[in-house]
């Protein structure tokens, strides 16, 4: 079974790489299979890790009389079922109810958490080294890095500040912001390329060693 699995994986890998030549039936077969298998996988995982333990089991316990509190799970089940009103032109407005609940809960959670994690923590991380500068525990290079950090953050934010026209000194500050952004995008691009190349190396290693090992 293990060798068969390696052959299946190798066949599908070669099917996908055949796209480097041009679009062909082998690539399309793998592409469509990938979509189907991925949808099926997410469906199974969501059912077994979300719906069954959180809704079905408590609800079943309520039906069998073990714990009546599980009946409350009928409410989110019914709200979830409202998604299927999408298929009825007369009742499709009901789909707004579950969407409104999910969006409302998500927005309510986002406000304090984004404020805490992304605004307070990032601001603190930017200005915190200055306390160490005051205490005299940073080297010259680290002090330069801390000052550069503040300049970079302020200039990048200025570039995204559209409430005033970018003229005069603001224009130059935002130009420095663009330079920092370019360095950021360059780093992101470099890391992405290396990540993809690492995956390529891993697939080639699989074909040469794992699959090749079953042939030779």
């Amino acid at each position: 079974m293990e060798v068969f699995g390696i052959w299946v994986a190798a066949f599908l890998t070669l099917c996908i790489y055949s796209f480097l030549y041009r679009d062909n039936p082998f690539y399309r077969f793998a592409e469509y299979l990938f979509v189907g298998v991925s949808v099926g996988y997410v469906f199974v995982l969501t059912t077994h890790q979300g719906f069954i333990p959180l809704a079905w089991k408590p609800f079943w316990a309520a039906i069998t009389g073990e714990s009546l509190i599980g009946l409350i799970k009928l409410i989110p089940i019914c709200i979830g079922l409202l998604f299927f009103t999408r298929f009825s032109t007369q009742h499709q407005w009901l789909v707004r109810y579950p969407i409104a609940i999910l969006i409302g809960a998500g927005s309510g959670l986002a406000i304090p958490n984004v404020l805490r994690a992304n605004i307070f923590e990032q601001t603190r991380g930017t200005i915190e080294p200055f306390a160490a500068i005051h205490a005299g525990t940073l080297s010259a290079g680290e002090i330069f890095g801390a000052i550069l950090m503040v300049i970079g953050v302020v200039c990048t934010l200025t570039y995204f500040f559209f409430s005033i026209e970018h003229r005069g000194p603001i224009k130059w500050v935002s130009k420095v912001g663009i330079a920092f952004l370019m360095i950021g995008f360059g780093s992101a691009f470099g890391n992405t390329v290396m990540g993809r190349v690492a995956l390529l190396i891993q697939r080639v290693d699989f074909l040469l060693n794992d699959w090749g090992g079953t042939i030779f």
Partner: peptide, 19 residues
């Protein structure tokens, strides 16, 4: 350093927009 400062600027901007 420069990459993190650009990312922090983006994160702060995006977060203010999200809030």
């Amino acid at each position: 350093n420069p990459n993190l400062s650009a990312r922090r600027g983006i994160i702060l901007g995006v977060s203010l927009g999200a809030i």
